[in-house]
Structure formats: C-alpha cells, structure tokens
C-alpha cells in the first residue's frame, strides 16, 4: 500500500465535506488533510509559518480549488511547480470554474489534471469516484510514485 496523503485545499467547507465523503464512498482510504486557503497548504508543504519545523508525509497529492482567499489556487500551483523540491507533487485542480482560459492557464503552469465539479449530485459523485481511481493509478508503485 502506497501511503499517499491527500491535501484537500478548499475554502468552502461544504465542498470539502462532499469531496471527502465521495472519496471515502469510492473506497478511498488514504489520509485526507483539509486546508482552507493556498497559504495554509504552501506553509504545510514548505514547512513555513504555522507549520515551521513540522514534518509532512513523503507522498502527497494536492486537490486544489482555484478561487480562494489569501492565496488562490493558481498561485499555489505556480509556487509548487516552480520549486525543484515540490514540482513532482501531483496537483489536481478541482474547481467549479469551467472557463477555458482558466483551464489553459492552469495546464500552462503545470497542473497534472483539471477537474470541473459538476453541479448535480450524481455527476459530482462520479467525478470524485473517477478521481479516486485516477489518483490510485497515478500513485501506484509501478508508475514510479
């Protein structure tokens, strides 16, 4: 078992709860740590600010919202992908924004996947389930994770 920890960055607690529930429902048992803005998660990953001196798991995957206070998702992505130490951490954008320029922008900065949250429950459940499967495949040892 590959101990991948999911860093769920989402300012809306309802969304975070929905995502977590649906990940669990799809049989996903990995640890999920929730963050409410970009600053929190970068502090965690770079061991800065309130997480100064703290250690973090070896294998991480970031589920990143875009529109957030303090530091938005695009900025987090830029920081992670612009740093040698963190550029290999997989980042999946998970957002309600389906604007093509935003999508293009995130892929340009280097996100590994861009997932639009569907409004309907069925669609949402399916997307998160697929996402869970996708993450499992991506993090499997044969894939070098």
């Amino acid at each position: 078992m590959n101990p991948v920890t999911i860093l769920l960055v989402e300012d809306d607690p309802a969304h975070a709860a929905l995502i977590e529930r649906n990940l669990k429902r799809s049989g996903f048992t990995n640890d999920v740590i929730k963050f409410v803005n970009g600053k929190q998660v970068t502090d965690y990953i770079f061991s800065e600010g309130e997480y100064a001196g703290e250690k973090h798991p070896k294998h991480m995957l970031v589920l990143l919202d875009i529109n957030m206070p303090v530091m938005n998702g695009a900025e987090v992505l830029r920081r992670l992908k612009g740093n040698e130490k963190t550029k290999d951490i997989p980042v999946i954008m998970l957002t309600t924004t389906d604007d093509q320029t935003e999508i293009d922008n995130c892929y340009r900065i280097g996100c590994n996947a861009y997932v639009v949250k569907p409004v309907g429950h069925a669609g949402f459940t399916k997307v998160i389930k697929d996402l869970g499967l996708f993450v499992n495949i991506m993090m499997s040892p044969t894939n070098g994770g």
Partner: peptide, 19 residues
C-alpha cells in the same frame, strides 16, 4: 456565475447525500 455555482454544488451535493 462562478460564485453562485459554488453554493449550488453544495446544495445539490447535500440533497443527494440526504437522499
């Protein structure tokens, strides 16, 4: 459209959860 959509995701999501 973006900001209104976000709560809608929650509303429909949790009504689905409730079902």
């Amino acid at each position: 459209s973006h900001d209104l959509r976000s709560p809608l995701v929650s509303i429909q999501g949790f009504s689905g959860e409730l079902k």
